[in-house]
């Protein structure tokens, strides 16, 4: 039975996904072991059920992120925090000391000339803090790194797809 694999993009720069793509030809090997059932890299709108492994990039920053990660947690066996944003809140977390209002004012008012003002619709509302995923839901595996190298992701993923627990502290670190 092939495993069902998902990748998720919350508040991050997509660098972790780029690093994932850097698996290059090893992607074919992964594809032999698992079906990619949901990902920003494929065109599937609904997060499916019964997912074996989900690699989640990015911090939980907005109400949408929160809603998504809680839903995903319910549908995934092994939830992986991929990259520093999801493990530590990293760069998205740098706004935390300043408060949402100051951040929005800077982004939508102070630095724009055309229609200044924080939009009330369309963009999801920011939470007071951008948080690491494990502060919101249970996380099974942590892969720190900004981004974790393709080798690290490959190692972690193959171990997980084989049903083993990867030992990651020797392979990567915060900011790696």
């Amino acid at each position: 039975m092939k495993k069902r694999l998902a990748t998720v993009w919350l508040d991050g720069c997509s660098g972790c996904h780029m690093s994932f793509l850097d698996l290059d030809e090893r992607l074919i090997e992964v594809a032999e072991k698992a079906d990619l059932v949901y990902s920003p890299l494929v065109d599937i709108k609904e997060f499916p059920g019964d997912v074996d492994v989900a690699l989640v990039e990015g911090a939980v920053s907005s109400e949408e992120d929160l809603h998504k990660i809680q839903m995903i947690r319910r549908k995934v066996k092994t939830l992986v925090s991929l990259g520093d944003c999801s493990v530590t809140a990293n760069v998205p977390g740098m706004r935390n000391a300043f408060g949402v209002k100051a951040v929005c004012d800077r982004a939508y008012t102070e630095n724009v000339t055309l229609n200044p003002g924080t939009p009330a619709q369309v963009i999801p509302r920011l939470l007071p803090y951008a948080r690491p995923i494990h502060e919101v839901v249970n996380v099974d595996v942590f892969i720190p790194g900004c981004p974790p190298s393709a080798d690290t992701i490959y190692y972690a993923l193959t171990e997980l797809l084989e049903g083993r627990q990867p030992e990651l502290s020797a392979k990567t670190r915060f900011g790696a």
């Binding site: 493990v87 690491p132 996380v139 720190p144 990651l168 020797a170 915060f174």
Partner: peptide
């Protein structure tokens, strides 16, 4: 501590020690 944007990333005793001690995440809230 945002390692990814730090001038000392990769040359930091705290970061190094964390890895050496097998830390992959921080379970206390920030």
């Amino acid at each position: 501590h945002i390692c990814s944007v730090c001038v000392s990333n990769g040359h930091c005793d705290l970061q190094w020690m964390a890895q050496k001690l097998g830390l992959t995440h921080v379970h206390f809230p920030y």
